[in-house]
Design a protein around this nucleic acid. Structure first.
Lengths: 244, 244
DNA sequence: GTGTAGACTTTGAGTGATCAAAATCAAGCG
DNA sequence: CGCTTGATTTTGATCACTCAAAGTCTACAC
């Protein structure tokens, strides 16, 4: 049985891998800061996650991650390439998706059944995801009607780790004047989520893209209330949408 | 912040103290075995819980408990009397009741909202009681309508640690031909709980006491279905009732 | 009063997870 | 090539929790 700590490393590694492929694949417009941060050197070779990224995500010092990655490699959950980085094995990926399934189902449950605000459920779920048995998880899943997405629009893996697919893009990539539906708010920061909620940037809401000015780094959308919302590129990049 | 382990020790100590006062106060009929087990020596002086009891309850070796009790004494949660036993301090009692509140609310929630069987919720709650935040706990409490008793009939402490009172006795103490209502099934063993459920021994059920034979160690009750249920003293002692 | 059983404590060690700080490495630059 | 820089690894230590096994107490029994 993996410990809760192991589950956490694996989950974080999965999410880091996702961030990796998303940034490297055609998704464009990396914000200028991230380049500076890694000293201009090539960021993580060939799909490997740098240990320092993981250390930061886990809130531990780098040495701890090195040790942990060696252990997880031996356990067959991670492929660890010394001095280069690491990647999940198939078994690791399965475990990660399992933990993420628990996390997201719990989030949705807290919002739908217990009425918590979507900005507060992430932290709760961080703890509960390690305490929920299969039995209870399945009850929750059933109780919610086998949902496909959590309150932030993040996909919920099914019991086999399969994720529902969707043709999503970020607001940054939208054409001016297009009509889109918010599918997902990335990033779990409570402040940002409150801001999003207050401006109607909620999964399901329909928006009109009023302006996309990459030079000024500005995107303006009009929500269903008819009010225009100006967003910087960072914020706009976190709002993912589908055609509507 | 107390760790989950500390919470567990404190909770177990509280329950052991309860068992103590219940057995020592007029409740009578100690079953013969318990005497033999402690070698005929006086069981736990003056309201102190023997460390070996605690060790057994926690599933650890006695040495571990000694160490832990010293730490908890220093932390002000426990009064530890070397070579005699230990008892909770007021702070310890508060903490214990807090953990028990979480445990019992979770149990009821799992039964009422998620539809689990009362025989399976104890183990789930053992884990979840350490993972639930105040925020979520209060939502659950509200969602259930501030309940006073858990599915087994055990009282749920309120936020200040106050327990609802009830004039309860065990089936062993009932008069023949009396009419009683089941208020509580003590003991968390799944097998016993299944047996109880299958025979209608559920909080709320009304019973007629048909026979109480202390010599043969036999109690017979008739349930609402009209069927007579014979119980040994051990089992009967676990069924607690109020007048009906 | 001496023995003894059983409860209790001590000691030494291990595990899992972490840190601080020193040592090492690899890549790109001049 | 040799340097610098930042990532990475190593080393030695700590903390919370646990165990096994040896040692100590104490109350009762005779």
């Amino acid at each position: 049985m993996p410990t809760r700590t192991v589950e956490d490393y694996i989950k974080r590694l999965y999410l880091a891998e996702q961030a990796l492929t998303r940034t490297s694949s055609g998704n464009a417009k990396v914000d200028p800061k991230s380049r500076k941060k890694t000293g201009g050197k090539s960021d993580s070779k060939a799909g490997l996650v740098m240990l320092s990224k993981l250390a930061q995500a886990m809130g531990v010092v780098p040495g701890t991650v090195t040790t942990m990655m060696r252990t997880l490699d031996e356990a067959g959950l991670v492929k660890y390439e010394p001095r280069s980085g690491c990647r999940l094995t198939e078994r690791g990926r399965k475990l990660a998706l399992h933990v993420i399934r628990r996390h997201r189902l719990v989030e949705l449950f807290l919002v739908r059944t217990l009425g918590l605000d979507w900005s507060e459920v992430h932290e709760e779920a961080e703890v509960l995801e390690h305490a929920i048995s299969e039995r209870v998880l399945d009850r929750i899943d059933r109780h919610l009607g086998r949902p496909l997405f959590d309150p932030h629009g993040d996909p919920i893996p099914d019991r086999d780790g399969k994720l529902p697919k969707r043709a999503e893009s970020s607001l940054l990539e939208c054409e001016k004047a297009s009509r889109v539906k918010v599918s997902r708010i990335e990033h779990q920061d409570a402040k940002f989520l409150n801001f999003a909620r207050d401006n109607g940037l909620i999964p399901g809401e329909v928006l009109i893209v009023v302006q996309v000015d990459t030079t000024a780094g500005l995107v303006i959308v009009r929500g269903s209330a008819g009010i225009e919302i100006p967003l910087g590129t960072t914020a706009a990049g976190r709002v993912r949408v589908v055609k509507a």
